[in-house]
């Protein structure tokens, strides 16, 4: 029986990198899932939550829960949005309907690579990519969801792709939501320190599981005129 999956694409993917959403759907379908997209979805509320605007975050989280509490399995191509779902319950009173819903939805929400590897036990999606790639561990995926080996295993199963580890793979890229505009100089300095660790390594593409990090890293690389491409994991996994 096909597993029914409801895609939560995240607001950034919806508005800025829709290709990532399409690629995610395709990856899930290749892994044997039936994918649905509920167009009532918007955002998980994370921008406000991280900036300290809890009332606003709660309001957005409530509408997220309205959409998703009825879904069996929810998959997001973002570690930080998936991690946000695990924080949602604290925005509501302990014994409220919303808190209850948030706890239950959190159990059924997965980041894409975690879902493929841990839930479906799928590693090979038949992708092919000629070139060397490096993986950037997005903070929330790495530290809140414990994703480390999963994306790497998926990359290693892409035919033709060579995984070159970046020494500072686990360091923050400096995005951090509003941090990136409240402290732009520090944000960029953090990223430069990270990218410096790639020096002397031949890499064609930098891959990550979060569009927010890719926006930060890609924006800097583009400004510097670097030939290094940025790709979302889903895009790599559908490459042929």
């Amino acid at each position: 029986m096909k597993r029914r999956v409801s895609l939560f694409v995240s607001c950034l993917v919806d508005q800025i990198r829709p290709e990532v959403g399409l690629a995610s759907a395709q990856v899930l379908e290749r892994a044997g899932c039936e994918v649905e997209f509920d167009p009532r979805q918007t955002c998980c509320g994370q921008p406000a939550f991280n900036a300290g605007h809890r009332a606003e975050a709660a309001c957005v989280a409530r509408s997220f829960l309205d959409v998703f509490h009825g879904k069996e399995t929810i998959v997001a191509p973002s570690g930080s949005c998936a991690a946000m779902v695990t924080h949602m319950a604290q925005l509501f009173p302990e014994d409220s309907v919303e808190a209850e819903r948030a706890r239950s939805v959190a159990q059924r929400t997965f980041e894409l690579s975690a879902f493929l590897v841990r839930e479906l036990d799928v590693l090979d999606l038949g992708a092919r990519f000629e070139g060397s790639v490096t993986w950037h561990d997005a903070c929330h995926g790495l530290r809140e969801l414990g994703l480390h080996d999963e994306p790497r295993a998926l990359i290693q199963h892409v035919a033709g792709a060579e995984l070159v580890e970046m020494p500072a793979a686990e360091s923050c890229c400096g995005f951090g939501g509003t941090f990136s505009v409240k402290h732009p100089e520090i944000s960029v300095a953090m990223l430069d320190t990270k990218l410096d660790s790639l020096r002397g390594r031949e890499v064609d593409a930098l891959v990550s599981g979060d569009v927010s990090c890719l926006m930060q890293i890609g924006g800097r690389l583009q400004r510097q005129g670097s030939p290094l491409r940025t790709l979302h994991l889903a895009e790599l996994l559908v490459a042929r």
């Binding site: 694409v9 508005q15 829709p18 997209f37 930060q216 924006g219």
Partner: peptide, 19 residues
């Protein structure tokens, strides 16, 4: 943001439209 990085652009069509 733009001081050190290229700013992201809104995609011509959103994911929901493409979907």
């Amino acid at each position: 943001w733009s001081a050190g990085r290229e700013a992201p652009r809104l995609a011509r069509r959103s994911f929901r439209e493409l979907w």
